[in-house]
């Protein structure tokens, strides 16, 4: 079997196993209702994590997304309150802003050769600050069009509801999966994440790819912001603090290598669902503190990083990698 898919297979195995165990204790957990809620409750996280997957595959990181989601909610709330714009127009405007924001961060990362960590950290402060400037209070979001979105669902067999926002999340996963694993652009992202210097030698436009990747992440964060605003019916500048870290955790649990170049987009969805499942289990149990979610996720994350480290070592031993790695690092130094 392809060793690269192993983390994904392990993730799926863990999800099925965990679901099975939960089912033994609470048979009601295996129903389309629970699954529908699982998807709806985590729709915004799924969307933003997919964008994060692309960034991480390209060898970067985007810490701004949580703040961008909060900004999105506040922006939508303020625009609906203070202007006569239709929600759809506001959504389009917002997606334009967040995409441009992502593109700008990508451009800074590429042109100034700055580490993505710092650039997107700055982006995080800027987006969160912009949200505060717009409004410190929580703004209710009410509009017939938004209520229509909230109540739109497809009734699955077993009376589970697949809501529109859950469907939007699944659609995003499918579209980005195609983009990354089936399109020339995806190959470039993988190439840049594998080794940017070699990718450039092979004729990949590293700059354009990098900028596009952060633009995509900005778009996903904006879309997640729309979904979160619809889901909570409110815009609040203190919302989704730390969501970028949840997204990174989902990406890693989903089997994507944190150093880039290797991973599988649908794995991120499974990662999100595992995190959601733990939450659901705690709700079913009723006696556990919800903070156990964090502890279990922490342990899972740890296990996955260890698994990936093992796989990487296995691979480099096969390729006679040590000397090569040494040379490459020497070349890297020379290039720098």
């Amino acid at each position: 079997m392809n060793a690269r898919l192993l983390p994904f297979v392990v993730t799926c195995g863990i999800f099925v196993l965990a679901y099975g165990l939960a089912w033994l204790q609470f048979p009601a957990i295996l129903s389309t209702r629970v699954i529908g809620n699982l998807l709806t409750d985590n729709a915004y996280l799924g969307i933003v994590a997919v964008g994060m997957t692309v960034v991480i595959l390209s060898g970067g990181i985007d810490l701004s997304v949580g703040a961008v989601i909060a900004f999105s909610g506040v922006f939508i709330g303020v625009m609906l309150r203070d202007t006569g714009l239709h929600p759809y127009a506001v959504f389009v405007l917002l997606l334009l802003i967040t995409t441009l924001f992502g593109l700008a961060m990508g451009a800074v990362i590429h042109l100034l050769e700055m580490p993505p960590f710092i650039v997107t950290l700055a982006g995080m402060f800027m987006a969160r600050g912009a949200a505060y400037v717009l409004s410190i209070d929580s703004i209710p979001i009410r509009h017939p069009a938004i209520e229509a979105i909230q109540s739109a669902y497809w009734l699955m067999p077993g009376k589970g509801r697949l809501t529109l926002i859950a469907g939007l999340m699944l659609l995003t996963v499918a579209a980005v999966t195609l983009l990354i694993h089936r399109s020339p652009f995806g190959t470039r992202v993988m190439a840049v994440g594998g080794d940017a210097r070699t990718a450039r030698l092979l004729g990949v436009d590293v700059g354009r790819t990098t900028v596009a990747v952060y633009g995509l992440s900005g778009f996903c964060a904006g879309l997640a912001g729309v979904v979160f605003a619809v889901y909570t019916s409110a815009g609040y500048s203190l919302a989704t603090v730390g969501t970028e870290l949840d997204a990174i955790a989902a990406v890693v649990i989903g089997g994507t290598l944190l150093t880039g170049g290797s991973g599988f987009v649908p794995g991120t969805l499974v990662g999100v669902l595992i995190m959601g499942l733990i939450q659901t289990y705690i709700v079913f149990d009723g006696t556990l503190s919800s903070w156990w979610t964090k502890i279990v996720i922490g342990m899972l994350l740890f296990g996955f990083v260890a698994l990936q480290k093992g796989l990487v070592q296995l691979r480099s031993r096969k390729g006679g990698g040590r000397r090569r790695a040494r040379r490459q690092s020497a070349q890297g130094r020379a290039a720098a």
Partner: peptide, 22 residues
Amino acid sequence: QEVNLLPNLTVAENLMLGREPR
């Protein structure tokens, strides 16, 4: 000397990078 291809891509992707049939 150090093979300038991308080990994380498939052989076909390496060969066709930049001129993939679409």
